[in-house]
Design a protein around this nucleic acid. Structure first.
Lengths: 356, 356
DNA sequence: TCTGATTTCGTTAACGTTAACGAAAATTTG
DNA sequence: CAAATTTTCGTTAACGTTAACGAAATCAGA
């Protein structure tokens, strides 16, 4: 059992023949140290593999300055809503790091109003913050935000990216294309080569999302890559949230056959599709959708939905805070980009405890 | 933006009209404080909701005593082997907590020799350790270990539990029955009601494991619960690792039909079954197995295995260290029992980066 | 060469917790 | 009731890092 005491700033100072103050100065790249002594200290640090003790560092610093993380998310209407989970993860991480001096400040924007998003982040910039966590909802406004953050040298992390950011930014999100591929294989396994396939894109007032497009592309890519003789069609159905009655006729026509049917719902509302198809008396249908919201979980439990894909929003939020903290305290940005696994949920491995 | 400074031991001392030394004494339940002052301090602590600053605590304590965690795992033969991943998770957590004063000491036992397991943990007990992480491989010896650890008041965490521990202990492991249920649904989805089902239990010198039995039970339970008219058979095949040639004949006979076949391999060697069936020219077969070892991943990539269930050994090891640290530093045992999710892996959401 | 400005650097008091040390108070003993 | 014990409690120096403060050394200008 080796017991190697970690080397500290004091030892470095002795070895380099300087004071701890000087070591601290070079560690933080502060001014006031000559080139030669800087080199000397750096050499010793290199040789000894010294890493500063973060816990001592945070103990000292947390008392004078707590890191302020701004969080800008869509308005949360419903306790069980998707963003509620992102928030929960953020809160959990902040709780864990609380004594180390970090705080989250929550802001919300109207999910249908780009202007409001812009106004919100401009308002945030008037406060003194150290980083911003948000969501790339609106293409143009997001680009502007990226530029502005760069200008202000403000770390920026996006959750649930729906945009192909041209500028490289920090993204913690699931690869939607990959998720579509997963959905493809799962549905294909259930439905087989002789079935019918449908992609349901549910449209809200903002139209179809890039995320959903990517998911559909991945879904189609699965079939193209895995079935040489691809002689059956995948129907895309764009379903507006309102006046879906007129759609129901088309659906009756399209889906009313004896064939096994596979339905891929590219967003979180697969329960709506499930209910609609049930109402239309469509049978022999296998549905796969996204996100573990309450109504989806109910349909999973009742076997009306076969698969759900989890984006783990709680983990996304949690990771964003942890990653930012690491970046702000260690200048280590490695945890600011995360590819959230495509988690496959069925009735047997689902956690229904939130339903009770 | 509220900025609430955390209350400290000093404030408690002032409020209770005692010195910080006394506050520290009641915080640690040490002797030397009268009943009345103890009550007084406790009351203030309660009222203020004071939580001691762990980072300051660890800063002080890490210098005088680093926590020693003993890790006793089966001998690791192969870099890619299952236990290698447990080890990697343990190492990662220890790395993260290094400066807070924690160390892991690794020990290995012969996987086929219960005596050696016992000898190993007895040897470990001669060292000064603060906790032990191990694996419940052998029923009798594990029970003895549990008793001994209780006696020594030594925290004990089991990874990959294969035993129904009568004594309550700390387990970080996947629910094997549930995993079997998951396998049941996934295979049933692919194979349907008209197929044939097989459970392969691969036997090594130690015979069949309780884990594997539980998995089979879960698998069968799925079908019993979900198919009212359950008129087809699930064949169990016990396959010894050596002289499997004689088995091949039986298998030829059993599996040689046009029907779609579903094969559930209850341990990590599904690649062996896959290869064997291929050799026997059995077609139309769907295999599901456990663990993301290299040969399994290769068969997943080549579509010879359809599903793999991940037990996330790395996460298990990681969580064991983190949980023990929390317990040893905060007396909070809540993270010492973990139900590892049944993670479903298919070709599209697998991480093949370790194959390269 | 002397003054003043500037750069370089060492000293020190914190951050909140811990526990050793010893002083004071309370209790027991003869 | 004084001496000896025992119990209760306050003081203090750490843990490793930070940054303010000011001293010493170097440099610039006349």
């Amino acid at each position: 059992m080796n017991v190697s005491k970690n080397i500290g700033i004091k030892e470095i100072a002795v070895l380099a023949n300087v004071s701890i103050g000087t070591v601290d100065r070079v560690l933080h790249g502060r001014t006031g140290v000559s080139k030669s002594t800087k080199a000397k200290v750096l050499k010793i640090i290199e040789e000894t593999g010294f890493k500063r003790n973060l816990m001592a560092s945070r103990l000292k610093l947390a008392s004078s300055k707590t890191l302020q993380i701004a969080v800008l998310l869509p308005e949360i209407k419903n306790e069980m809503y998707y963003w509620h989970h992102s928030n929960a993860g953020i809160k959990k991480a902040v709780q864990e790091l609380n004594e180390q001096g970090i705080m989250a400040n929550y802001f919300y924007f109207n999910r249908l109003d780009p202007k409001n998003f812009k106004k919100s982040y401009n308002m945030i910039f008037e406060h003194e913050i150290d980083a911003l966590i948000t969501v790339p909802f609106f293409e143009k406004e997001t680009d502007e935000l990226i530029l502005k953050a760069e200008e202000l040298k403000l770390p920026l992390v996006f959750l649930d990216s729906m945009l192909n950011n041209k500028n490289k930014t920090n993204n913690i999100s699931q690869n939607s294309f990959k998720a579509g591929m997963v959905a493809g294989r799962l549905l294909h396994g259930l439905v087989g080569d002789c079935g019918q396939y449908f992609v349901f894109n549910i449209l809200n007032k903002r139209g179809i999302q890039i995320n959903n497009q990517q998911r559909e592309m991945g879904f189609r890519a699965y079939f193209e890559q895995n079935l040489k003789e691809f002689d059956f069609e995948i129907h895309s159905i764009n379903m507006p949230l309102e006046n879906k009655e007129e759609l129901e006729k088309d659906i009756q026509e399209l889906l009313n056959s004896d064939k096994t049917k596979g339905v891929f719902v590219t967003n979180a509302r697969s329960f709506l599709v499930s209910d609609m198809l049930k109402e239309c008396c469509i049978s022999n249908v296998n549905i796969i959708g996204f996100d573990l919201n309450l109504p989806n979980l109910e349909r999973l439990k009742s076997n009306d939905i076969k698969f759900l894909i989890n984006q783990n929003p709680e983990f996304q939020g949690y990771s964003a805070i942890k990653g930012l903290f690491k970046y702000l305290t260690e200048q280590d940005a490695s945890e600011l980009n995360l590819d959230i696994p495509v988690e496959i949920i069925i009735k047997e491995n689902a956690d229904f405890s939130e339903m009770n």
